[in-house]
């Protein structure tokens, strides 16, 4: 493994363990409520959910079906909170690739190593991607085991499809934060851009289903390429995932070119 990748993973190690534990705890907590909900259809059934305002149901991804295994898993874990946890984790890791070390000054020595600047960004991204993959793999195994334990009756392939989407979405936002950090050298703007794109993107994708005025914006929302294919119900939306992966590559190339051109630490 190239020295910069292993160094990056070493720097991320503690953070990765914490995120894995945190996301795992989230899964564990929410999935442990499932038996109670599936046994009380009359409380959590469609009639109960219909009481919520329409816009709120849209934001929560519809909430048509809360009591079946796949419906619960989707509404509670894979609609909003699961992806958002991955997005925040990846954005923080992305910020630690360039912007944070540049602000604290540790990047100065790194750029004077006999490593091409473009390779430096690429290897930092590789560490980010591998780290995030580790978190995704560990939490997938946990989610799969847990869903089997509480009899959710969801095929492991479908969970894998949804989890892959969450990983790709997270990686996209990690690359976004890395790209803004690589271009500006500052943490603040990187986090701000990620925040705006993530929250805005999510609202546009969910509300846009029923609001014509913004529905055309859905196709620029990263969440569209994860949520629209309903992976938990329909399996891998290959085309959509390729778009997410492609956009990530574009962001990575932007980061590489931007960082290669500019002064570091001024």
């Amino acid at each position: 493994m190239p020295a910069l990748v292993s160094k990056g993973l070493r720097d991320y190690r503690r953070s990765l363990v914490r995120w894995t534990v945190g996301i795992g705890a989230f899964f564990g907590l929410y999935l442990s409520f499932y038996p109670n909900i599936s046994q009380n259809q009359e409380i959590y059934g469609p009639q109960a959910l219909a009481k919520f305002p329409g816009a709120m149901r849209d934001l929560m991804g519809g909430m048509q079906d809360f009591t079946s295994g796949v419906g619960y898993l989707h509404s509670v874990v894979y609609q909003l909170f699961g992806p958002m946890l991955f997005v925040v984790c990846a954005a923080i890791l992305g910020n630690r690739a360039i912007a944070q070390p540049e602000e604290t000054g540790t990047l100065e020595l790194t750029v004077t190593l006999p490593v091409d600047r473009r390779r430096l960004v690429f290897e930092r991204f590789a560490a980010l991607a591998l780290g995030l993959l580790g978190v995704a793999a560990a939490t997938f195994l946990f989610a799969w085991a847990l869903s089997a334990a509480v009899d959710m009756d969801v095929a492991s392939g479908r969970i894998l499809a949804a989890h892959t989407g969450v990983f790709l979405l997270g990686l996209f936002f990690g690359a976004l934060s890395l790209a803004v950090g690589a271009a500006t050298g500052r943490r603040g703007p990187a986090m701000a851009v990620v925040g705006v794109v993530a929250v805005g993107g999510y609202i546009v994708e969910t509300m846009g289903r029923n609001v014509d005025a913004i529905s055309w914006l859905r196709w620029v929302s990263p969440f569209h390429y994860y949520l629209d294919g309903r992976p938990l119900y329909q399996g891998f939306p290959v085309g959509d995932y390729l778009v997410l992966a492609g956009a990530t590559v574009v962001l990575l190339l932007t980061a590489i070119l931007a960082f290669d051109r500019r002064d570091v630490g001024v």
Partner: peptide, 8 residues
């Protein structure tokens, strides 16, 4: 920093 290509 110029000699080390940290800045251009």
């Amino acid at each position: 920093r110029l000699l080390l290509d940290v800045i251009r």
